[in-house]
């Protein structure tokens, strides 16, 4: 039997986001950017949030970080608990700053995210001066150690240089060094390798994995590249039109895709399989307008199997396995459509 999405919770997770909803006031009306998003992540785990641009991935993590400008932004409901304590709307818990100290963040574009007028060493030292109260000299020597940790050669010399003297890959390393400088328990990586070449991307992904092994921090990875997800993630949340439509382990998502959108994303991407036919199947159409989000399932206009119920009623989450759910009406017991391409719960289960 498929169970309802609201399962009883076990012990408090490191980060537990529950029913988060974020809106923005614009001249065109209210944009419902994030609608009812719940996920959690534990130490040493990597959660990937996947989806097309505009689906609300970045807004989700920015609201957790308190980086949403308010106004025009507004968190209308939901909570985000860090070790059981609410962090939405506050900047500090237990005497520690959340931003920078508890949660570190690396941004997509390293070229525009760093201050061009400060040397790299000073920039990395700054969070330690602010959050940990280090004096400049101690913070600066820590910064050099961090540059070594992120494998920047000649770190003493490099620390004196300015962002324009660094290549894209080096800047991303410097940004990682800055993000982990206060030993955060969670690292949020918002498309950390999208602006980089594949060879440099591989280096950065290796580095993130290594740092996670050493420090045991949790990583929340935002990306649209399923290859990066396969490489790094344990857990995956697939977002579409402001909602998480499927959530599960990385194996669930790749080998037991249960939502048509997840399948669509996978089929639109080239694989390395030489036997696969050389035609990509794009997802037709484009995502819905979030000024007036659809009443039913956000994906039904693009879904090849959409039914009449999909337009009128929002699908609840159907659990297929422990921790694997899909918000799609086809998982309802009475659904007449059960395409073989999708994974359905085995009848013997539960």
């Amino acid at each position: 039997m498929s169970r309802n999405i609201n399962q009883p919770k076990s012990s408090p997770k490191l980060l537990d986001v529950n029913k988060l909803a974020v809106e923005f006031d614009t001249y065109g009306g209210v944009v419902h950017a994030v609608r009812d998003v719940s996920f959690s992540v534990d130490s040493g785990e990597t959660l990937a949030i996947v989806g097309e641009s505009g689906c609300g991935k970045s807004v989700t993590v920015q609201s957790i970080m308190g980086l949403i400008p308010m106004p025009p932004g507004r968190i209308t409901s939901g909570s985000a608990l860090l070790r059981g304590q609410e962090i939405l709307g506050t900047a500090m818990i237990q005497g520690r700053d959340i931003r920078g100290s508890e949660i570190g963040m690396i941004f997509q574009d390293p070229m525009t995210s760093l201050n061009p007028t400060m040397s790299i060493g000073d920039q990395i030292a700054e969070p330690m001066q602010v959050h940990k109260g280090y004096d400049y000299r101690k913070a600066y020597s820590e910064a050099i150690k961090l540059l070594e940790l992120t494998k920047i050669p000649e770190s003493t010399k490099r620390a004196k240089q300015y962002p324009f003297e660094f290549s894209g890959g080096m800047l991303q390393r410097a940004m990682i060094a800055m993000a982990i400088s206060c030993k955060p328990s969670i690292l949020i990586a918002d498309e950390p390798t999208t602006a980089l070449d594949v060879t440099i991307q591989a280096q950065i992904l290796d580095l993130l994995q290594e740092l996670q092994r050493e420090t045991g921090m949790a990583i929340v990875l935002i990306t649209h590249d399923l290859g990066v997800v396969a490489r790094l993630a344990n857990e995956v949340a697939v977002m579409y039109a402001g909602k998480i439509v499927e959530h599960g382990s990385v194996e669930d998502i790749f080998y037991r895709s249960a939502h048509p959108y997840t399948l669509g994303l996978r089929e639109a991407m080239p694989t390395n399989d030489p036997d696969k036919q050389s035609v990509l199947s794009p997802i037709p159409g484009s995502p819905p307008d979030l000024f007036s989000p659809p009443v039913g399932c956000g994906y039904c206009a693009r879904c090849p199997w959409s039914m009449s119920v999909c337009e009128s009623k929002n699908p609840e989450g159907f659990y297929l396995n422990e921790g694997h759910y899909s918000k799609c009406w086809m998982h309802h017991q009475q659904s007449p459509v059960k395409p073989i391409e999708l994974y359905f719960e085995q009848q013997t289960h539960g």
Binding site: A202, D206, V229, A230, R231, A233, F254, N272
Partner: peptide
């Protein structure tokens, strides 16, 4: 070889098995 090997594949089992083909430097 390195360029092809750096390209992450959307298949977690393959990705885990594959030896890292990271190239040093830029």
């Amino acid at each position: 070889e390195i360029l092809v090997g750096s390209n992450p594949e959307p298949d977690p089992n393959l990705e885990r098995k594959r030896a890292s083909t990271t190239i040093k430097g830029e």
